[in-house]
Design a protein around this nucleic acid. Structure first.
Lengths: 234, 234
DNA sequence: CGATCGGTTGATTTGCTTCAAGGCAGGTGG
DNA sequence: CCACCTGCCTTGAAGCAAATCAACCGATCG
């Protein structure tokens, strides 16, 4: 069973055996990070972080104290592949659930890209995919809260399926309602009510830590979700 | 006086005389596009568009009919430099004001990047800057409407200054309130009231087509704006 | 000269926030 | 093993920011 990074980057195009092996080596020496901890040392732009398990996010605390999450890092996701053009961006990266994270010297990744065309292509694919997703989130922000949350669930299901961490219609999802709120930009109280309404209309079934989507196509239609922006294979 | 593209890409790093000349050649053969017209032919991924004058935007019409603008294209901005990894994204690009636009075969741009390292670097800088801006817009979306509009004005001022199209504290800005509304994700009626309140508190002074900002630092503080995410020189 | 587009204003409604409690489960220390 | 946290979820009531609905105005233009 391949590591999450290889599984993830396979969506960027073909990777040779050598390239897969090189990527696999990056995933050794992982460390555990508890939930609700920052992954990256502030201002350390020399290291790229790779999530191997768990869910992390990129976020910022606004002046009024609210936290805004602008993207999720799922297993196989690299963080800040290409250093911000001018200095460190003022984004933090932190865990939402307990995570396993590998730290990769940026220079080592750059070397790999230089010598392996498939890896080079994959890294550029990552940036384009992040851009595409950010725009989709922007569009999502102008939908009502229930569709926004539904859209988020659709994305998480598909992305986790892409790295074999979700079934056809259910995921083991341990995000708190506070996390969902900071992602969707609404209050956690309202998230609670939105979830109840989604459950009531049969769009989702949520067990303890399990999100089940009885009719995926129906939820996607409700959320106006089209997985194209994730640039996954197939 | 250099063309907008050269002025813009100068922020990405040094460009040799040869590179500047090569960029200048791209700006010949511009066409005029009236306001409220799409620039790109749907699904034509073979052409990169370059805005030479006027303001255009990337947008999408959501299912409920609302238009969501996710980025602005100002003079010197290229559109879709790197083709979406998998097929055409479902974004439209259209003018907000009358524009002058040059169409550049993607292959020609790729050739330039191959032969001119400075241009290659500049093109990668563009993508990173777009990503950075998209994330900033996401964060901006969780601020109240008045700060959101203020943030937008701050960005436009700085970006237009970067291509010598704005003074120290005023811009010739011909965006309609409807355009602002679709950018900020609020109704145009509310935009109207927000503008009145910004005027009342002295944060902006708007003449007919002129936006003046009496105290730029004050507006930036109000909007929690830090130009770092635009990756401009200096 | 009507038509259209952009801006403005008031009245009403609503989606969401905020405030305030209370409940339940898991984890910890006595 | 129980007592007590603390984090997360839930619920109700009240308030507010922004949407919606509905006019009207002024400028520009064919």
């Amino acid at each position: 069973m391949p590591d999450p990074l290889t599984r993830r980057l396979a969506h960027a195009g073909h990777l040779s055996e050598t390239e897969q092996e090189a990527l696999r080596e990056l995933t050794l020496n992982a460390r555990s990070v508890a939930a609700r901890r920052d992954i990256a040392a502030p201002l350390s732009t020399e290291t790229v972080h790779l999530v191997l398990s768990g869910i992390a996010c990129r976020y910022k605390i606004l002046l009024d104290g609210t936290r805004r999450i602008v993207s999720y890092l799922l297993p196989g996701d690299l963080c800040d592949v290409h250093a911000g053009a001018s200095g460190a961006a003022d984004w933090s990266v932190g865990t939402l659930t307990p995570c396993s994270v590998a730290d990769i010297p940026r220079e080592r990744l750059a070397d790999l890209a230089r010598t392996h065309p498939g890896i080079d292509r994959a890294l550029r694919w990552i940036t384009l995919t992040e851009l595409s997703a950010a725009r989709e989130w922007l569009a999502n922000d102008s939908r009502p809260a229930d569709r926004r949350i539904a859209h988020l669930f659709c994305e998480l299901l598909v992305r986790l399926q892409a790295v074999d961490l979700a079934g056809a219609s259910s995921v083991d999802l341990r995000l708190s309602q506070v996390d969902l709120a900071d992602t969707a930009g609404i209050s956690f109280v309202h998230v609670n009510r939105v979830l109840q309404s989604l459950r009531a209309s049969g769009l989702i079934v949520s067990g303890k830590h399990m999100l089940t989507i009885p009719d995926v196509a129906r939820l996607q239609a409700f959320a106006e979700f089209d997985s194209g922006y994730l640039h996954l294979a197939q």
